[in-house]
């Protein structure tokens, strides 16, 4: 009897407590103080959605950025992972949210420039759906060979044409595109073996299951440093600062600049002052020591261009890749 009584009191107190928490504000669409006034931006937390799983490079970039932005804006910037379709799910979701500055998404260039070459029209995401705020960084791809393959440079690879197996990080990725175009331009014949992501592809090339693979620099560097794989060339437009001795594809005469870029975006139609404030906070975040050393540790090259420049750059790249695949009759979707 007393137990039940106590339980009832406890339950009632809990209920009262719960109701008072109503003042805290929820996160349901329309539940937040959806005010007309952007006078007091930011009025609540700013959610940064990432279209990749936690722990990957895109996610880490988002968290590093969110940390800095949170300090500048004075509100919390929680990072929410919403993996799916290389970021398409997250981007579409955020694009559909109200454009009041409380929802942001971290974009991967490959989603815009490369994925459309491999999937159907209605799944492709366009930059028209979002407002790009600022470019963040560049992550280069590097073509590495296993130690056992004996390849030291591109000529060795060319000599082995016809017998080469190359690993990619998946269908519709920069890794696949870069290698397909390079091989077509250099006249190298090989079999493409897709893996699920950079990690298994790298493991495969370290173990000589495939002879070469194109991996993001941040993932491949420890293996390069340990001597487990040999870097053949990098796919950046200019020599990468972390691999000064490795030639670029462009230097070797092949016009295949492929890099992964990240940028911050918001739903389309953001009010100008909110946009300006957000860009300001990004600038503050990337200037901090914590962020710059983060870039260094992860071998990311800062690429902090304005939102308009990002749109220009990525649109140009998308067109270029379209032309390249058409010219060499490459189909990423096989």
């Amino acid at each position: 009897m007393r137990l039940a009584h106590r339980r009832a009191v406890a339950g009632a107190t809990a209920a009262v407590a719960a109701l008072t928490l109503a003042a805290c504000g929820g996160n349901v669409a329309g539940g937040t103080g959806g005010t007309e006034a952007s006078s007091e931006f930011p009025s609540g937390p700013v959610t940064l959605t990432v279209g990749q799983d936690a722990g990957g490079s895109t996610d880490l970039i988002a968290r590093a950025l969110a940390d800095g932005m949170s300090g500048d804006l004075g509100v919390s910037v929680p990072v929410v992972n919403r993996a799916g379709a290389n970021g398409a799910v997250a981007t579409q979701e955020v694009a559909g949210k109200p454009a009041d500055g409380s929802n942001l998404v971290l974009l991967n260039a490959s989603l815009i420039t490369i994925t459309p070459l491999a999937v159907s029209e209605d799944e492709a995401v366009s930059l028209d759906d979002v407002d790009v705020l600022k470019g963040l960084s560049q992550d280069d791809y590097v073509l590495v060979a296993s130690k056992k393959s004996g390849f030291e440079d591109l000529d060795d690879l060319r000599a082995a044409s016809g017998e080469v197996t190359y690993g990619t990080t998946g269908v519709g990725t920069g890794s696949q595109l870069a290698q397909a175009v390079l091989f077509a331009q250099a006249g190298i014949e090989g079999t493409s073996v897709p893996f699920d992501s950079g990690s298994p592809a790298l493991t495969a090339v370290v173990g000589d299951q495939v002879q070469v693979a194109t991996i993001q620099l941040g993932e491949a560097k420890p293996q390069i440093d340990a001597g487990n794989v040999v870097p053949l060339l990098a796919f950046s437009a200019e020599r990468n600062q972390f691999l000064p001795d490795v030639p670029t594809a462009v230097e070797e005469g092949y016009d295949v600049p492929v890099s992964q870029y990240r940028a911050l975006a918001a739903p389309k139609g953001l009010p100008e002052d909110v946009k300006a404030r957000l860009v300001e906070s990004v600038d503050a975040a990337v200037a901090e020591d914590a962020y710059t050393s983060f870039n260094e540790n992860n071998l990311l090259t800062p690429h902090e261009i304005s939102g308009e420049e990002v749109v220009e750059e990525w649109t140009a790249l998308a067109e270029k890749y379209q032309d390249l695949t058409a010219e060499y009759d490459i189909s990423l979707a096989e």
Binding site: G55, L60, A64
Partner: peptide
Amino acid sequence: LGIPANATMALMFGALLIQGITPGPQ
């Protein structure tokens, strides 16, 4: 080896990177 075996290990990899340590053969 610096190769994460599953999703959780990948997160540890990331955590180490944040701390400035690169897991790997070295």
